[in-house]
Design a protein around this nucleic acid. Structure first.
Length: 356
DNA sequence: TTTTCATCTCAGACCACATCGATGA
DNA sequence: TATCATCGATGTGGTCTGAGATGAA
């Protein structure tokens, strides 16, 4: 059972490449007014000097139907005009997301992706074996384009994801005595938080739930869902008070908020540069905190009784259903268990399970 | 543009029975 | 108070099924 991308619109298939028609388009060439996959983009725009001067932008990460017009730092996503308008007009918090106009690039998208990925290979090596990574990647489809084109392993990640490592800043709710009574599971974080880039603006940190709301075609987010985290466990979590929202994924980016609390529309100049000037120590600390948190996170079915699990796995089935044991089978089982009284079945995942 | 059909995806149902936990003797 | 017996409820996993989504004709 796969996990659907949290960002792409269900029901909308990515726009196909105008050239090969088979791969999903990854970039939009303004000069050609063409949607191209990475391979075709590389082929076409490396053909001659003139073509290499064509300005291109990435596709919208949400609808994958139109060229991206803005980059939302809070969502770590490139959005087209329509999606940007829909998403960021949905509620007051979303309106405060800091956004920048998308900068067109001239190099081949493939080479950009390659250089981008190599810069993160070190970090990747530290967080390999992480099948949950994909859950944290805002746009799985977006990433998969690179994976397809570059034959990369899906567990690699990209700079856009870097910000997602930063999702366990101190939670004022958890820290308060009020938070102790919250239904939100409180996970002690023994590692002190890394310096917050914009300490005074904690109230400006927020999460957007792109999974829960099952993005309808109208992109209307229920107001009560604005603070849900990506974690599936958050489905049980009540509404987190506006303005103090922190959960599993809280992006430490801020909108440039004016005194009225509204988005001034002008990017905060220091934010981007500071965000990219993280030291190696900061980065390592963040990766460590991320791994710690990931370890405590579970998307798997909870097994309450290992003994029942062990027994269920040994039981005969007919078309997947439990079946009655025949007398001979019962005798065999009795002999097995009785022949070695006090024997144990080692269950790697759930520890030692006593036999029956 | 609308309708029909085929295909795909996914959540929930189903089964038997050891074990759990409450209750009473 | 401690121990034991009884009984209904619970939980366990692999497969099937039907509803809904999607795409092609």
């Amino acid at each position: 059972m796969g996990i659907q991308s949290c960002w792409t619109l269900p029901g909308l298939s990515p726009k196909p490449c105008d050239t090969c028609k088979s791969s999903p388009a990854a970039v939009f060439c303004r000069a050609d007014s063409a949607y191209l996959c990475l391979a075709c983009d590389s082929k076409i725009h490396c053909a001659n000097k003139l073509a290499s001067r064509h300005q291109r932008v990435w596709m919208c990460e949400v609808c994958e139907q139109a060229p991206a017009a803005v980059t939302c730092k809070a969502d770590a996503a490139a959005l087209c005009v329509t999606c940007d308008a829909d998403i960021h007009s949905a509620n007051p918090l979303a309106r405060r997301h800091e956004r920048f106009p998308v900068e067109p690039f001239l190099d081949s998208a493939e080479s950009i992706a390659k250089s981008t990925s190599s810069a993160f290979n070190d970090a990747v090596s530290t967080i390999k074996n992480d099948d949950a990574d994909s859950l944290l990647i805002p746009n799985l489809n977006f990433t998969s384009k690179f994976v397809d084109a570059l034959d990369m392993k899906p567990d690699m990640y990209f700079p856009e994801m870097e910000s997602l490592l930063e999702f366990d800043y101190p939670n004022p709710i958890q820290n308060s005595s009020l938070g102790m009574d919250s239904v939100v599971p409180v996970q002690p974080d023994p590692i002190p938080p890394a310096p917050v880039l914009h300490q005074p603006s904690q109230e400006s940190c927020f999460d957007i739930d792109f999974c829960r709301s099952k993005l309808s075609s109208s992109f209307s987010y229920p107001a009560q869902s604005i603070s849900q985290s990506v974690s599936s466990s958050s489905l049980d979590v009540g509404v987190v008070p506006d303005g103090n929202s922190f959960s599993d994924i809280s992006y430490p980016f801020i909108a440039n908020v004016n005194q009225n609390g509204m988005d001034s529309g002008v990017p905060a100049p220091a934010t981007v540069s500071q965000a990219t000037q993280l030291t190696g120590v900061d980065r390592e600390a963040r990766v460590m905190r991320y791994r710690e948190k990931r370890k405590n996170r579970t998307f798997q079915k909870t097994i309450r009784y290992a003994s029942r699990k062990a027994y269920a796995e040994t039981r005969p089935r007919i078309k997947g259903r439990f079946a009655k044991r025949s007398e001979s089978e019962t005798e065999v089982m009795d002999r097995i268990f009785n022949s070695a009284p006090g024997s144990y079945i080692a269950d790697a995942q759930y520890g030692v399970v006593p036999t029956f």
